[in-house]
Design a protein around this nucleic acid. Sequence first.
DNA 1: TTTCCTGCAAAAGCTTTGCAAGTAC
DNA 2: GTACTTGCAAAGCTTTTGCAGGAAA
Lengths: 136, 136
Amino acid sequence: MLDTRELFEKHTLRCTRQRVELYETLAACKCHPTAEQLHRMVAERSPGTSLATVYNTLEAFTDAGLCRKINSSGGARYDADVSDHLHVVTTDGRLMDVPPEVGDEILRAIPRAALDRVQERLGIKVAHVEVLLRTS
Amino acid sequence: MLDTRELFEKHTLRCTRQRVELYETLAACKCHPTAEQLHRMVAERSPGTSLATVYNTLEAFTDAGLCRKINSSGGARYDADVSDHLHVVTTDGRLMDVPPEVGDEILRAIPRAALDRVQERLGIKVAHVEVLLRTS
DNA sequence: TTTCCTGCAAAAGCTTTGCAAGTAC
DNA sequence: GTACTTGCAAAGCTTTTGCAGGAAA
């Protein structure tokens, strides 16, 4: 298990107090927080961390592949779990993970051959499949 | 094939010039436009339609199930095609449909039983499965 | 010592809202 | 006639940016 500093080194991200705090807060959180929520959470332990830094840092993390940005109405949400997994959005705006045992079954069912055909037909390279279940 | 007025009646939406124009513009468009883009397109034929009305109307359409809202960075996009189909987002921000022949194969592969298990485990009712392919 | 990061405040999007006038039913 | 819709402008969000000082490598 890499510690946070090593993780940053591996991705050539400078290791600052704010980044460590932010990453560990996000990683410890199962709730897919918004930037605003993360800012509040981090502010408790690390007063003075600015919201601009939270946004900049989350972008750096996302670009580096250390977290995932999930677009949703009312502000993007972030997830430090970058493994393939599914999300559920409820009508009242909650966002949660699909339990991995069930999610994996769905992901494994997606035929590789079909994805290959999409790539060929559209002339693109599919890097990631995102699945969102919506409640009514 | 229902005409636009009948479609609105079926969904108890009042039939106004702006709504008809907007719906037909969106339906004729394969490009998943933003509210801003739709506003520009509509403004050519129907000068004076306000951006606020575009937003309000798109929300009414979405609530009624006449179109779908796709959250993405840089503003939501709208799609009058409400049938089950997949989207691709490229890194440069383009959003397009996966060709239906291939998309259907992927959707059909999703095991009903797994979705049932998600519902049971999370105590929710899954109304819609949204699949987004991302390029790297 | 160089380069990048941070905080602050201001600006820049995107989206919603209040209200008066207008329109569908 | 009643209830809903529209346009306008203003306000409310979320997110980005410029810049000066500070910290990492």
